[in-house]
Amino acid sequence: MAQAVNYHPSHMESYLQELIGRPFRDIQAEKERLKRKSESLEQEKLSYLQSNYKTLVELADCQATTKEFLGNTKELSQNIFGKKDALYNITSQSQQFLSSISIHHQQALLMHRMQPQVSSILKIPELMDSCIQKEYFSEALEFQGLTHRLRDRFASIAVIQDLVYQIEALSEKLSAKFLLQLQKPLKQYTLIKIVTYLRVTSKLSEAEIKYIFLFYAWQQLQSNLKSLIPLLDYNNPELYLKRYLQVIRDRAFSLLFQYQSVFYESTTLYADPANSTVDNANLSFNEASTLHQLDHESLQSFSQNIISSFVKKLVKEICYVLETFLPRVHETTVRSSLLLQLYYCNQSLAKVGTDMSIHLYTILGKEWLDMLISQAEEKPF
């Protein structure tokens, strides 16, 4: 009974059981009906095939194409799987490239926002060059300082690197301009500024700056002395000697005083009499190129003795003129006047640390001692 309850016959079995219960005549009629229905369905099938022939052909072609595509896809998938490492590397490189593009894009946006400021920055070399041409040195140094601050903050930016390159070239031009200024007779305040600027802008050492200063100072002194040549009369040199001592007293004193002020030196400039000749000096002032051949130790030694070399050369110059022309002066009154002027000249030079008394005694002998004694007996001038 449990099996009967759980048994569920199919539709076909139900249909057969129903036929079994019918008369034979009904079964024969049902057979004819089914046969007609089968023929009708077959006819509909043929009609459907005929009406949808093209669609079925296209469907078959699509099926074949799909199978072929699936085969190719499978092969391609196998190739891709075999090259997954290479694809991973390419993908990583692409990501890095996209990251760099993003960074450059951000920088481009920043440059766009900062375009007015960038335009001003790009004009710095032009403005600095204009200041150099017009000798606006303080302003030129301000532009140089601004560029150095930009370099310290944005050293990796190509625009700033190019700006720094241009400013460095202009700095060399500015240093050359300062050196040209030293060739001119300048007031003390201006001279101090020019030397200070040289210390900031040039690559010269302190010894080299001292040398250049005194080299041009010597040229200026010689230029002033050469202007006296038209006054020279070898048979009557009194006027020439008078003007010569006046120039020495004024210009040499001024140059030595400027040197002490500019380089903050107040030590005695006078050298030991035993070594008081320019021949014993480290270098000749007429050989500027020799300075660059010195090593660091020699350069330091030269820095300590350069002013002494200058004074030795100055003293030798004065002594040469006196030995050459003073013996040609025979009149007692004129000689006394020249000796007195020479005394005052020596006194002026003594104020800046040098003294020619021993050299003058070698040339003039007792005549110079008498001058010193007579001046010592009088009240200070």
Rank of each mutant, 00 (worst) to 15 (best):
K84P: 04
P23M: 03
Y320R: 11
K312D: 08
I209K: 02
T73K: 03
S202M: 08
A281Y: 07
C131P: 03
A140K: 01
V159I: 15
M12H: 09
R25I: 13
Q107K: 05
Y216V: 06
E206P: 00
V164H: 11
I212E: 00
Q43A: 15
A281L: 04
Q17F: 00
A376N: 11
R251D: 15
S261V: 05
S100Q: 14
L326I: 10
M114C: 05
P273N: 13
P125T: 06
E377N: 09
Q219L: 05
Q144W: 01
S301Q: 09
S175M: 01
W218S: 10
A288E: 07
E238N: 02
F263H: 09
D129G: 04
L59E: 07
F302E: 15
V321W: 02
F81D: 15
T268H: 02
S119V: 02
E172N: 12
Q63H: 11
E265S: 11
Q183E: 14
Q117L: 13
Q3W: 05
L179P: 00
L182M: 05
Q50A: 14
E30Q: 09
L349C: 13
Y240D: 11
S130K: 10
Y244I: 06
E208Y: 01
H330E: 10
N224C: 07
E68Q: 14
I80D: 03
D85R: 13
A140W: 04
M356N: 11
E287W: 00
N235L: 06
F302G: 01
E126C: 03
S99N: 00
I167F: 02
H148F: 04
E142H: 02
F381C: 07
L221E: 06
K35Q: 13
